[in-house]
C-alpha cells in the first residue's frame, strides 16, 4: 500500500497554514522585533541589540517585580489548586451521596469564562456595596471588612483566592477520575494488614496517583505563567502595579505603543515557557502513543 497516496500531505495543509501564519510566524518575528526599537512613535525601525532586555532586567524599572509577581502567583495558585483539590477528592471519593451532582456543581466555574467569574467577584468584593463586606458587617465583623482588591497587601491574595475558587472543581474532577481508577483491592489489603488511613494514603494512593498529579501540576503552572484575564478584570495590575503580571504588562506596553519592550517581555516569557513546555509535552504524550 502506498501510504503517501492514501494519506496525502495536502490533508495537513489547512491546519498548518492557520497555525503557521498566526501562531508560529508571530512567535518567530516577535523574537526578532524584541531587538528593535519598534514602537508607535519611532519613525524608523532600528536595531537596538539588547536594550529592551537591559530595560526589562534593570533594577531601576518595575519589570522584575512583574516577573516576580507572575512567579509568585504561579507558585501560590499551583500549590493551593493541587493540595486543596487533592484533599477534597480523597475525602469525597467514598461515602458521599450524589457525588455526580456535587461534581457537576463544582465543575461549573471551569466552563464559565474567566471574565464572568472576574466580574462576579469584582462585585462581591466591592468594599462598600459588595456581598462579602456587607455580610461581614451584618454579622458584626466590621473589622474584617477590607478593601480586598485595592489594599496593596491583600490584592494579590484576593486574586489567588478567586482563582482557587475557579480552578478547584476542575482539578478535583481530574483527580477523582484518577482516584476512581485505582482498584480498591490495594487499600483493602493494606487495611487488613493493619495500615491506618494516613498510611494507605501516603504509601498506596499517592504513589498511584502520581502521574495524574504531575499533569495537574503542569497544567496549573502553565496557566499561572500565562495568567491574564482574571488579573486584568479584577485589578488590572493595580494597586500601583502590585498585581501586575507578565501578560498584563505586555498588554499595557502594547496599549502605550511601546511594542519593542512588549515583544521583548513576550520573548522572556517564551523562554520560561519552553522549558516548562518541553516538560509538559513529555508528561502529556507519555500515556498516549502505545496503541
Amino acid at each position: 500500500m502506498d501510504k503517501k497516496k492514501i494519506y496525502p500531505w495536502y490533508f495537513a495543509v489547512g491546519a498548518l497554514v492557520f497555525y503557521g501564519a498566526l501562531f508560529v510566524l508571530p512567535g518567530l518575528i516577535g523574537v526578532g522585533y524584541s531587538f528593535t526599537n519598534w514602537s508607535s512613535y519611532a519613525r524608523d525601525l532600528a536595531w537596538v541589540g539588547l536594550d529592551n532586555f537591559a530595560e526589562i532586567f534593570s533594577p531601576d524599572r518595575d519589570y522584575l517585580t512583574y516577573i516576580k509577581n507572575t512567579l509568585w502567583f504561579t507558585a501560590a495558585s499551583t500549590i493551593l489548586k493541587t493540595v486543596l483539590p487533592l484533599a477534597l477528592a480523597v475525602l469525597l471519593v467514598k461515602e458521599v451521596k450524589g457525588l455526580a451532582l456535587h461534581r457537576a456543581i463544582l465543575y461549573i466555574p471551569a466552563v464559565l469564562s474567566v471574565l464572568i467569574t472576574g466580574l462576579t467577584f469584582k462585585s462581591i468584593l466591592n468594599p462598600q456595596y459588595g456581598f462579602l463586606n456587607q455580610s461581614l458587617r451584618a454579622v458584626g465583623l466590621d473589622a474584617l471588612a477590607a478593601h480586598w482588591l485595592t489594599d496593596p497587601t491583600l490584592a494579590m491574595w484576593s486574586i489567588i483566592a478567586v482563582d482557587v475558587w475557579r480552578g478547584t472543581g476542575y482539578v478535583m474532577t481530574i483527580l477523582l477520575v484518577g482516584l476512581l481508577s485505582i482498584s480498591s483491592t490495594y487499600s483493602e489489603a493494606a487495611m487488613i494488614d493493619g495500615a491506618n488511613a494516613w498510611q494507605v494514603f501516603r504509601h498506596i494512593t499517592l504513589p498511584l496517583l502520581r502521574p495524574t498529579l504531575a499533569v495537574v501540576i503542569v497544567l496549573n503552572v502553565l496557566y499561572g505563567l500565562k495568567v491574564f484575564d482574571i488579573v486584568y478584570v479584577l485589578t488590572n495590575g493595580g494597586p500601583g502595579h502590585r498585581t501586575e503580571v507578565l501578560y498584563t504588562a505586555v498588554f499595557s506596553e502594547f496599549s502605550r505603543g511601546r511594542y519593542g519592550v512588549g515583544t521583548a517581555l513576550s520573548t522572556v516569557m517564551l523562554v520560561v515557557m519552553v522549558v516548562a513546555g518541553v516538560f509538559m509535552i513529555r508528561v502529556l504524550t507519555r500515556n498516549e502513543v502505545q496503541e
Binding site: F23, P26, G27, I29, G30, V31, Y33, L222, L225, K226, Y247, V250, F251, E253, F254, Y259, G262, T263, S266, T267, M269, L270, M273, V274, A276, G277, M280, I281, L284
Partner: peptide, 9 residues
Amino acid sequence: IVLPINYVA
C-alpha cells in the same frame, strides 16, 4: 498547546 502567544508581534 503550551507556548505563549506573542500578541504584539
